[in-house]
Design a binder for these strands. Structure first.
Length: 266
DNA sequence: AACGAAACCTGCGCGC
DNA sequence: TGCGCGCAGGTTTCGT
């Protein structure tokens, strides 16, 4: 499910679990825990202080530990009661002392969790490599990185070490808003264009956050959340351009489905 | 170092 | 009806 707006939306709901204490943990499918994770059972008796996000990552603050969670393609959380039956694809249950059960559900089993010491958080490679989120991204630095890339800008923007938080849908939308052809190589872009990409990213992500994210493909939404940003998509999954009314192109770039208007995006 | 492709998984819709 | 293929909001790893 998740790009930055969806992850923010999930975090908002997860924060309703704040100040609850873990009673026990049920691990049904072990592989969703990273190999390099501390023992998840160290969380027993710990209290959830807050759920923060970093790009597409969820960071659960459990006192001296942080539980890092990445939903990848289809990870979801559901808040249930401890005695509720497990449904298919529920892999982990964090059970709290008040009988609340936080269930991690992931059809494709791509998502990962990793428990680390809070004071070691800054040493976690997958997090330290991340670029800034668009909201506080240094435009000069962004331009420098992008202008070294001899790959389509579509692929560049999916690289979280260059800009953090965009996924396939929002990259498609950002490039339309920036009027840039997704096949354009990074090295071909001007500073003005890379600045525009950052501005568009901020605007589109903020709007999507406000709408609770995007819900497509009739996914069962996480935590009962149904975002509304699908009603504002201008190219992703669209048939015709809302500006020039020409047919929206759907091609593969780097294996990812890319929607764009060949008239508006030069 | 940088890039493309494969790997990691399951379920759904489509064409034959 | 059944089967095979392609597709899905992501990241890491492997080979060139």
């Amino acid at each position: 499910m998740p790009e930055l707006p969806e992850v923010r939306t999930v975090a908002k709901v997860l924060n309703t679990l704040k100040n609850k204490q873990i009673k026990n943990i049920n691990i049904i499918y072990l592989k969703v825990i990273s190999d390099n994770s501390l023992d998840i059972n160290l969380l027993i008796n710990k209290t959830l202080k807050e759920v923060a996000t970093l790009g597409k990552y969820l960071l659960f603050d459990f006192e001296e530990y942080i539980l890092i969670s990445h939903l990848r393609m289809e990870g979801k959380y559901f808040i249930k009661k401890e005695d509720e039956e497990y449904v298919k694809h529920e892999h982990i249950a964090l059970n709290f002392t008040d009988k609340t059960s936080l269930r991690y559900h992931d059809t494709r089993k791509f998502g990962r969790m990793q428990l680390v010491y809070k004071d070691k958080l800054s040493e976690v490679p997958s997090l330290t490599k991340l670029a800034s989120e668009p909201f506080n991204l240094d435009k000069e630095e962004f331009y420098k990185k992008v202008s070294k890339k001899r790959v389509p800008i579509k692929s560049v923007l999916l690289d979280q070490t260059i800009i953090n938080g965009l996924g396939n849908i929002y990259v498609n939308e950002v490039l339309f808003d920036s009027r840039i052809n997704p096949l354009t190589q990074g090295i071909e872009l001007t500073r003005k264009q890379t600045d525009k990409i950052v501005d568009s990213s901020v605007n589109i992500l903020n709007h999507a956050i406000k709408e609770g994210g995007t819900t497509i493909r009739s996914y069962t939404s996480s935590l009962g959340i149904t975002g509304n940003y699908q009603n504002f998509l201008k190219v992703h999954l669209q048939e015709n351009c809302c500006v020039c009314h020409n047919k929206i192109q759907n091609i593969k770039i780097g294996g990812r489905s890319t929607y764009y208007c060949s008239t508006c995006q030069k």
